[in-house]
Deep mutational scan, measured.
Amino acid sequence: HNGKLCKLKGIAPLQLGKCNITGWLLGNPECDSLLPARSWSYIVETPNSENGACYPGDLIDYEELREQLSSVSSLERFEIFPKESSWPNHTFNGVTVSCSHRGKSSFYRNLLWLTKKGDSYPKLTNSYVNNKGKEVLVLWGVHHPSSSDEQQSLYSNGNAYVSVASSNYNRRFTPEIAARPKVRDQHGRMNYYWTLLEPGDTIIFEATGNLIAPWYAFALSRGFESGIITSNASMHECNTKCQTPQGAINSNLPFQNIHPVTIGECPKYVRSTKLRMVTGLRNIPSIQYRGLFGAIAGFIEGGWTGMIDGWYGYHHQNEQGSGYAADQKSTQNAINGITNKVNSVIEKMNTQFTAVGKEFNNLEKRMENLNKKVDDGFLDIWTYNAELLVLLENERTLDFHDLNVKNLYEKVKSQLKNNAKEIGNGCFEFYHKCDNECMESVRNGTYDYPKYSEESKLNREKIDGVKLESMGVYQILAIYSTVASSLVLLVSLGAISFWMCSNGSLQCRICI
């Protein structure tokens, strides 16, 4: 991952900044910058967002509201009850120091605090018919004063009620008058409520006091790749198909172990950190130390980045220098085999997901714990399936590479015959000098055995068991695999060879 928040398929997220979902939807004055928000790819909250409900109280069923919003990608904020005409018999300019803005008392931008007009609070009834052709999110509140005197001074009615009804919602609220500790300079409380109004449905408000009335509502448009994440990451000019709280993932790998919460087309989250597919040879310690064997393909974004291909070729060293050249036929066979294998694994496992966190309130801790156990169970199954699949494929890959290298080895052996000696570690020792032209003939299969047989015969008789390297004779190393990324691999195959001279070296080696 890149540690950044990015656009998702070209669409920017909605960053709530210092506000949370509650503050944004109710219209906390400190969240005025969010009022123009219309569309987004996903919503970003920060872990310690401080601006929620400015007048103390709870947004009821907040967790369910977050779940609903996680599939919303755009909205239209509109005046559901026009301020100047909807409440002619009531005062609608209630403000509070708890919702101060720029040093002055204020109130929510989407709600109206209705109080008595003169000395009376006549029963009010108002309704709205949803003609938007889509779901409408309606929010309101109920004020709970701290004393009967406060109730009387604001609403005149000691036994007030609030009723809200639609086809799918029907509740009646009565204020709970009680002494409470002071929070944000208030002994009173406000509880906030919401409902989704279906197209064509009607919502009716009736009250004799204590109503925090809707002013603006939201017509919602769903987008199934949307979601809500909690993150401290910063926004950058970048684009992605998959976003996590820790950063964007741009990967076609089937798995990731970065974060379980994802938005967009994302690899499946697994616990494993070692889900690797081999593309090189079986481990040979001396070669492995030099980083030549054991190439791997990573299938977990965050564990290993991208696929690494092994390729086969020849390396030689003689009086004229040293050089490398790919054996294109065996390399292409290996590439085709690995590509098919990788595609097979991805096809089997690479279903892209959006995974969002589930919200539970403080009273639902047991449910949250149960949900976590269920999620953990599914996660263990996914991890096991992934590891088992790759384990089985790896064994076949190792066998496949062994065969490829063996074929190259036999190709060289059949040409050199007794003009060189096998020394048991995949290397041959020449009994004759071999210049670049000679080396090329070994690589392309045109090695002239009779041409060098007499010199080889004489050297075999002279050496008589002495280690060949100390006599200045020449080696050919018969097994060799270097490691390159897919891009470098293609470039390498396009070149005939490249040279690395070893000044004054008397050794001649050709490596497979």
Results as ranks from 00 to 15, higher is better:
residue 385 N to Q: 15
residue 467 K to M: 00
residue 362 N to C: 08
residue 358 K to H: 13
residue 317 Q to G: 00
residue 509 R to S: 13
residue 496 I to Q: 01
residue 243 Q to H: 12
residue 431 Y to L: 15
residue 311 W to V: 06
residue 233 A to I: 14
residue 435 D to K: 04
residue 273 T to H: 04
residue 481 S to L: 14
residue 385 N to K: 09
residue 392 L to M: 15
residue 463 I to G: 08
residue 232 N to G: 12
residue 248 A to I: 05
residue 315 H to D: 03
residue 360 F to R: 04
residue 479 I to L: 06
residue 296 I to F: 01
residue 446 T to Q: 15
residue 304 W to D: 12
residue 387 E to Q: 13
residue 467 K to E: 15
residue 249 I to R: 02
residue 466 V to R: 13
residue 257 N to E: 06
residue 467 K to F: 01
residue 324 Y to K: 09
residue 269 Y to S: 03
residue 319 E to K: 08
residue 311 W to T: 07
residue 437 E to Y: 03
residue 310 G to T: 05
residue 443 R to I: 03
residue 481 S to M: 10
residue 471 M to V: 14
residue 493 L to V: 12
residue 440 E to Y: 10
residue 484 A to F: 00
residue 484 A to Q: 02
residue 362 N to H: 05
residue 459 N to M: 10
residue 304 W to M: 14
residue 439 M to A: 01
residue 252 N to Q: 02
residue 290 R to K: 15
residue 332 Q to M: 07
residue 234 S to N: 07
residue 315 H to G: 03
residue 440 E to R: 13
residue 373 K to L: 06
residue 304 W to I: 08
residue 294 G to T: 15
residue 261 V to H: 13
residue 394 N to C: 04
residue 365 K to W: 06
residue 387 E to W: 08
residue 487 L to P: 05
residue 292 L to F: 06
residue 281 L to N: 05
residue 449 Y to P: 12
residue 305 T to C: 12
residue 380 D to K: 05
residue 321 G to W: 07
residue 374 V to R: 05
residue 337 G to H: 12
residue 418 N to P: 01
residue 404 N to P: 01
residue 327 D to C: 06
residue 290 R to M: 08
residue 432 H to G: 05
residue 497 S to D: 00
residue 462 K to Q: 11
residue 416 L to K: 04
residue 422 E to P: 13
residue 496 I to P: 00
residue 276 R to A: 08
residue 407 N to L: 00
residue 411 K to A: 15
residue 246 Q to N: 08
residue 247 G to H: 09
residue 279 T to V: 13
residue 471 M to S: 08
residue 243 Q to W: 10
residue 259 H to G: 09
residue 425 N to V: 00
residue 480 Y to W: 10
residue 374 V to I: 14
residue 250 N to M: 01
residue 454 E to N: 08
residue 266 C to H: 09
residue 306 G to Q: 12
residue 343 N to I: 04
residue 312 Y to Q: 09
residue 292 L to M: 15
